[in-house]
């Protein structure tokens, strides 16, 4: 095992430990920013696990997230189940769904894969709405719990930590190796005897599992679940964008993408309450031009320069 890999893991452990104290260190407002950031860190990191090495851009995050949130809402509101039971069921359903999608998309590549996942997410949202309308009926999906932001924050932190650890192991395993070769050249990968299908499906299933889990954890925070908000395609895009801003080539890319991005987002929302969408758009453009390879690219460039200087 390379020492660099180990030190990365130690760093991650320290960060997780420090991050766990956030609820005692800041007020409720900063904690709620922390929750948002942690949600995107967990989602983007699990997205990067699959899409980073393979270069397959998935826009299905919203579908899995939605399944998680929706199942918690429906289970608690219409069937009086406990949050914990639904939080266990939700990621399993998300994983099964992701596995099916994984198998279905094996032949697709490039932009066809991207838009396929998007279309699939939209189909799932429509089917869920239709089933609820015709068979379940509803008086609104309420998720009323006594959780507060710090509980949700810790749960998300735990998920993010697990995702990171898993990603770290995978990138050092046979599967991780296989994924990188797929990202390089899929035909080559097949020729050298790598079972590209299994590797892809396993990883995609993992991202589905975690996205649904995050959706389930966020549901009590939202308190009231509307299919059209919980299955938002915008979430899928934002997860991709935060990962890309950070840099999808590294597992820690999302971390350095999400945190500054969330703070920037907040700053814009406060400074320009009437035109925050417009100014966010301007920020996006500036970032794209100023950071060609995301935050990771910039950080590694600085590192290289420092080493050269030293």
């Amino acid at each position: 095992m390379k020492p660099a890999g180990m030190s990365e893991l130690v760093w991650a452990a320290v960060l997780v430990f420090v991050a766990a104290f956030l609820p005692w260190m800041v007020n409720g407002y900063w904690l709620s920013i922390g929750v948002t950031a942690m949600m995107y860190i967990a989602l983007s990191t699990s997205w990067v696990m699959f899409s980073g090495p393979t270069h397959y851009i998935s826009l299905a995050t919203g579908a899995f997230f939605g399944v998680g949130g929706y199942l918690v809402g429906a289970g608690m509101s219409d069937y009086q189940q406990s949050f914990w039971l639904m939080a266990v069921i939700a990621p399993i359903v998300g994983a099964i769904l992701a596995a099916l999608i994984g198998f279905a998309t094996l032949r697709l590549s490039g932009v066809y894969f991207v838009i396929f996942t998007l279309g699939l997410a939209e189909m799932i949202r429509n089917v869920v709405s239709w089933v609820q309308n015709n068979f379940l009926g509803s008086r609104g999906l309420y998720v009323l719990t006594d959780f507060r932001d710090q509980h949700i924050y810790w749960m998300l932190l735990a998920v993010a930590a697990v995702v990171y650890l898993l990603g770290w192991f995978i990138s050092r395993s046979r599967i991780g190796f296989a994924l990188r070769i797929i990202g390089g050249d899929e035909t080559v990968a097949r020729h050298v005897g790598i079972n590209t299908a299994t590797a892809k499906v396993i990883l995609f299933t993992t991202t589905g599992f975690f996205a649904a889990l995050v959706g389930a954890i966020i549901a009590p925070r939202w308190s009231y679940i509307e299919p059209n908000q919980v299955f938002s395609p915008q979430l899928s895009f934002l997860v991709v964008i935060m990962a890309l801003l950070g840099g999808a080539g590294r597992l820690w890319g999302p971390l350095v993408g999400v945190i500054p991005f969330t703070i920037l987002w907040e700053w814009v929302a406060i400074q320009f309450p009437n035109q925050s969408t417009l100014f966010l758009g301007l920020c996006f453009l500036l970032i794209v031009y100023a950071l060609p390879h995301g935050m990771v690219g910039r950080i590694e460039e600085l590192r290289a320069r420092m080493r050269r200087g030293a």
Binding site: G28, V35, T36, W222, Q229, S232, P273
Partner: peptide
């Protein structure tokens, strides 16, 4: 005044801001 962009997560965060900040 703040714009929640019709996003529950965003709304919750801003509500915290009104109260605390």
């Amino acid at each position: 005044e703040y714009d929640d962009k019709t996003n529950p997560g965003e709304h919750i965060k801003l509500a915290q801001r009104l109260a605390e900040q």
